[in-house]
Amino acid sequence: MTVLKRLAAILIGLIAILYLGATGLLFFLQRDFQYAPAGEVFEPQAVGFSGEVVTIPTGGDEIVTGWYAPPRDGMPVILYFKGNAGSFSAEHVRYRAFSEAGYGVLAFDYRGFPASPGVLSEENILADALSAYDWLAREGHPILIWGRSLGSGPASYVASVREAEALLLETPFYSAVSVAGERYGFLPVGWLMHDQFRVDQWIGEVAEPVFVAHGTADEVISVGNGERVFAAAPNAVELWIEPGGTHGDLWARGIWERARAFFESVNRGG
C-alpha cells in the first residue's frame, strides 16, 4: 500500500503541475490565443474601393487607420467592426459592396492590428470603437453598426452608449469569456481572462433594432452564442441561423442581401 500511495501522490503531483502550468500559460499568453493580428494591409485603390484612407485620433494621443467612403444622398453609413484576425482591409469585398449599394462605410484596424500601431487590449479596442463612432457622427449621416465575430464586442458596446439606426451582429459571442469557458472549461477562465468583452451585459442597454446572424456549423463561436445574444436584445428584430454555415462563410451564403433588407426595413420605420 505504501508504494501505491507514493505512486498516487506522484500522479496527483504531476497532475497539479500540469494544471498549474496550463493555467499559467493561459494567463500570460492569453492574448496570443485570443487575437491573430498579423496580416497584409491593402490600399483602397489597389482593390477597387473608391474611399479614402483616414486617421482617427483615439486614446493616449494615438491614432487608428481606416477607410472611409461617404454615402449617396439620403443613405446611411455602415460603421464596420472587424474580427480578431488580420487587417480590416482584407475584407475589401464587403466595403465595395456597401459602397456600390449607396451606403457609406467606415472600417478600421483597432490598435495593435496591422494598420494601427499600439497595444492590443479590450480597453483600447473599446476606446478605438468609440473614437471611430464619434469621428463618423461628425460627418452627419445616419449610422448603422455592423460587428463581426470579435467585432460584436465593440459593436454592442458602442450601440449601448451611443445612438445608431440599427445593430447587426454577425457570428457574435455572448461574451468572449463564455467562449473561452466552452473551450477551456477545466480552467478558471472567469478569473484569468483580461479581455472578456461582456456582450451579455451590454446588449441589454441596446435600444436599436438588432439583427443576429450565425451558422449552425460554426466551430469558432458556437451558434448558441448568437441565439443567446438575440434573446437578450430588448429590440431584437431578426435572427438568421444558417444551416451548415461556418464562422467565415456567411458572406458567401447571402448575409449582405439579408442585411440590406433589414437596413431598408429600419429606414422605412418597421
Rank of each mutant, 00 (worst) to 15 (best):
G60V: 12
P76A: 06
A90T: 14
L79F: 14
G83Y: 01
P76N: 07
V64F: 07
Y103Q: 09
A101Y: 01
V64A: 13
E100C: 05
E91C: 10
S89N: 12
W67A: 07
E91L: 08
G86E: 04
D73Y: 08
L79G: 06
R72K: 13
R96W: 04
T65C: 02
R96Q: 15
A97W: 10
G74I: 09
L79E: 06
G83C: 07
A85M: 07
G60Q: 14
Y68L: 08
A90M: 15
N84Q: 15
R72N: 10
S87D: 11
E91P: 07
E100D: 15
G102L: 03
D61W: 10
A101E: 10
A101Q: 13
R94V: 10
M75D: 04
L79R: 08
G104C: 00
F81H: 11
I63T: 14
Y95L: 08
S87I: 07
P76Y: 01
F81N: 05
G104N: 02
S87H: 11
F81M: 12
E62D: 10
G60R: 15
A69D: 07
G104T: 00
S99F: 01
P70H: 01
A85D: 06
E100R: 11
W67V: 06
W67T: 04
G74K: 02
G104S: 03
E100V: 00
V93I: 11
K82E: 02
L79H: 13
Y80I: 01
A90D: 08
A90K: 15
S89F: 04
Y68M: 07
Y95R: 04
M75C: 05
F98D: 08
A85Q: 13
Y80Q: 12
P71E: 00
P70A: 12
F88Q: 11
A101C: 07
A69I: 04
M75T: 03
Y103D: 07
D73V: 03
G104K: 02
G74L: 01
Y95F: 15
E91S: 13
P71W: 02
W67D: 14
R94W: 05
N84E: 15
E62I: 03
I78C: 10
N84P: 10
V77M: 03
F98Q: 03
F98S: 04
R94M: 08
R94S: 13
D73W: 05
K82R: 08
M75A: 06
F81C: 11
F81R: 10
Y95G: 05
I78R: 11
F98N: 05
G59P: 13
L79T: 08
V77K: 15
E100Q: 12
A101D: 12
I63D: 01
R96A: 09
N84S: 15
G86V: 06
P70M: 01
H92W: 09
A85S: 13
E62F: 04
T65G: 05
A97Y: 07
N84A: 15
G104A: 02
